[in-house]
Amino acid sequence: MTKILGKTGLESWLHNIMQERALVAPKHVGDLILFDPVQSVDEVVFDYENTNLSPKEFFFPRTDTLFTTKSQDNDVELIPTIIDQETVIFGIRPCDARGIAMLDGPYLDDPADSLWAQHRNKTTMIGLSCTKPAPQCFCTSVGSAPNDSSSVDIMLTEVDDGYAVEAVTEKGERLLQGVELKESDVTLSAPSCDTSVPAEGIVETVKKVFDSPYWSRLADRCIHCNVCAYVCPTCYCFDIRDRTDKGKIERIRTWESCQSKGFTRIAGGHDPRADKGSRLRQRFCHKLLYFPQQFGPLSCVGCGRCVVSCPVNIDIREIISDLQELGAKVG
């Protein structure tokens, strides 16, 4: 039996959630659709392909304060950031949720990143499965599916008279407490997504073609604009620096990208990745080789954002195909 929540039921549930917690949902911002805090259910966009930016910023904010300092009588007190706000993210796609769960790998690896852990603890993810994946999507090719509920707390799937509801985790069950659900025998359709990206065996292939001139040829076109990294749900590089404002010092971290010049330049001037080709290779090898070696899965969830957003059409799907072809030739 499937449990169904009607459309008006969903709206009042979201409204109730908003009374006690921050609700983040897809919303129109200018001509974009972004995950953003909403003040009323009217702002929520229910029908969208994928947001322009990933929801990673609610776990790994663009700018985060690691700690602040308080100076008194030549004594420095360091105050770590505590996150109190309970947040619910509504409408997260399976690919994005999977990206976030994947980053538990590096971030919760000992010693755990306490800010990430706090954000994870305080946030409940209500997933919305994709009924019609966008042409750039390829989650099925990289080990997931448009209805993959493995990384969300609650999964909703749109059906004729509302949404089929699946409580995936205890956290999800808690959030659903008191919500009236109808029983129904509707069967959920399993939409398909692009399965043609030959990601299988890519880890071994990348090792073989690591020193290929392919990378520097590809980098000819790359303008190293960082867009791919900033829209990506699994890119997690950061920069750390102090900020002083009227005597208050905070140590902050912000998004950064391995594509920017000088990312690996050390103080003495040496830069192991000074050329464009090795920087571009770093990004794809992180996703297709290093991350799998360290944590298992490819760190690409197939959301297709970089595919659409790249100003010069550097397309990870095409790169995976090219590499497989190249690898086959190398033998």
Partner: peptide
């Protein structure tokens, strides 16, 4: 507020 400081404008 929307800017994510990716510097794509500069790079292009």
């Amino acid at each position: 507020e929307r800017c994510i400081r990716c510097y794509a404008c500069r790079q292009a």
